[in-house]
Design a protein around this nucleic acid. Structure first.
Lengths: 221, 221
DNA sequence: GTCTATATGTGGATAGAC
DNA sequence: GTCTATCCACATATAGAC
């Protein structure tokens, strides 16, 4: 429980001020980006006073950090836990690529499904944050991701002993990109593809597609 | 020659006002995002008068559109040309997945290398634009990409007859994500991976890695 | 076409009453 | 902790001289 993780209660309008701000900010940041979202928009929708943001968080920048800290740490913790679980299970033998990618991708799904869908919004916000340089979030991401990168890199190196480490790092980079974009641009696909195929489907199906795509990519010679 | 495509002359400080604005805007939008980049920053660096932006473009929004129109149309035209060239060559027989992905990815490289590296900056900006909703650029992207999507989808469907069309669309979506992120987040990899592996390399090598990764992904069962 | 000056709005942040 | 009122920096945009 890091920073006022919201209760699962459906009537969120009775939450405390701090929690309401976090929840609305999360959504608006996702919809409009960080700099295009004003504190007035946030406090307006959250029906709290403008000054309360600075009272509770100190600054807009600090609010952004708080939004991230609330979800990112648990998400990456879950990823590490899943990986550890698999490694214990196999007792030193290398995991399969499928298992590793699955641990990475499906942790996101699990977090998204928890908390009655609120986590899903964060996933999409996370996608945006990776490509948003003007928010100071990037350095935060680096810290939060460093353990995950290290551990997954090691696991993948064991699973793919013929692949140079450099290649593995790049492919992980591609994986982050695919994940980020898939989450953030879920609405872009309709714009781009302009076909009735890829319609709003449940995240589970999409992530299974992603996993298959990524596993094949990692296994490329 | 759509909107003042810059000359290849190295001393750009002698360009005309409109061209200088476009060039600086392109870079600053990429570095800071659209809404975080003010016209003052642009005109300051371009050493032109503030009012000249509105004189030449009408508004900031129109400037953003101009920046995109300058490069995106030629890029996608190149992609279509490459695809057509291959199809003519094969006379009706399906292309290989490698050829198709290569036509898509390497057109970007070719454009990036042209114009003494200026195009590269645009590629990274393009990556940002996909995940930046607050700029009205998205609908522009949809229009500019629609032909490319249609043609490449058809080619891929012929190359992968066993793959449902829906799956193809999704994998194209993943491809866009990988490309967008790879271009935009080239600096993020150092933050994230915190290892000496993936260092500033030439774009060509990186795009070859991407291509291999993507081809394998598309070929996944 | 280019400049100065300015109109007009909105941003984040804060002081101080309650 | 919450509110009103306000400060001040900076945004886009434009009017009008040159």
């Amino acid at each position: 429980m890091i920073l006022g993780t919201p209760s699962l209660s459906p009537d969120r309008e009775h939450q405390d001020t701090k929690g309401r701000i976090l929840e609305v900010a999360e959504r608006l940041f996702m919809e409009h980006g960080f700099s295009a979202t004003s504190l007035r928009m946030i406090t307006g929708e959250a029906k709290v006073n403008l000054a309360s943001v600075n009272y509770h968080f100190g600054s807009k920048e600090a609010l952004i950090e708080a939004v991230f800290n609330r979800w990112l740490a648990p998400l990456n913790q879950e990823r590490l836990t899943q990986l550890s679980r698999l490694e214990t299970q196999k007792e030193g033998e290398p995991l399969t690529v499928e298992q590793i990618i699955d641990a990475f991708v499906m942790s996101a799904l699990r977090m998204g499904e928890d908390h009655s869908g609120t986590g899903m919004i964060f996933l999409r916000l996370l996608g945006r944050a990776f490509s948003d340089p003007g928010s100071g979030v990037r350095s935060l991401l680096a810290k939060q991701y460093s353990d995950v990168v290290t551990r997954f890199k090691r696991a993948l190196a064991k699973a793919l002993p013929n692949l140079p480490e450099e290649e593995i790092v790049w492919r992980m980079h591609f994986m982050f990109g695919t994940m980020a974009y898939t989450n953030a641009g879920m609405d872009a696909i309709q714009l781009i593809s302009s076909c009735n195929a890829a319609n709003p489907q449940d995240q589970a199906t999409i992530l299974k597609r992603v996993t298959k795509f990524l596993v094949a990519g990692f296994k490329a010679p």
